[in-house]
Amino acid sequence: MNKFIKWGLLVLALGLLGAGWWLGLAWAPPDREMGDVQRIMYVHVPLQWMAMLAMFINFVAAVAYLFKASWKLDSAAEASAEIGLVLGTAGMITGAIWGRPTWGVYWSWDPRLTSEAIMLVTYTGYLVLRRFVEDPEKRATWSAVVAIIGAINLPIVWFSVRWWRSLHQVQSSPRTVDPEMVLPLRVSAFGMLFITLFFMAVRYRQALAERQAEVALPDALPGDVPMSASHNPSKVA
């Protein structure tokens, strides 16, 4: 990616995040019931949305890899899973911080929290698997399979946990959001989107460079195997 675009993205992201959070902290009205505590929403909600986006990108990259293998798709899958895991963890921590004064507890076994915890464990497993397989082709194929199976599982987890809990406690009703809260939320969400894209771009380039170093022809042999001779047999067959 062009250097200019990359750093522009970062500046834009920081600007939007700064503006969004200033609006959220200083301009938007406090929540009627929760008071100032609710302002953590402008951090928490964008984090959660972007974690979802990153996991979705991971799923798409994994499916695409199985159809047409390429190091780019594998690198995109790795980058998005890592970033998604970081965002999701940050989202969960901010959620717990929010939960403590609101519900009186850091953690509750409500469907959303439970599903998210399971999602984080799923992608931790995915990244651990990637560390434990040396062969780049096998790592890419196997982790794509694991990513797909894990992603398919998330909606099932969501429904089953909701069902499981609903037998005991009533779902909390969806919150209505004041229009004056929408603007800061929207601005921070776009800021978070751009910073996610920035990190993703950086991490993607790192991953791609790692892959290329892994599959590069060592100097010891005469370099007459073309680098472009693809890693993927189905492409060259």
Partner: peptide
């Protein structure tokens, strides 16, 4: 035909 294992070429062209 070429075959690579990790960073090692076991068969080269």
């Amino acid at each position: 035909v070429s075959k690579r294992y990790g960073r090692r070429w076991a068969l080269a062209r």
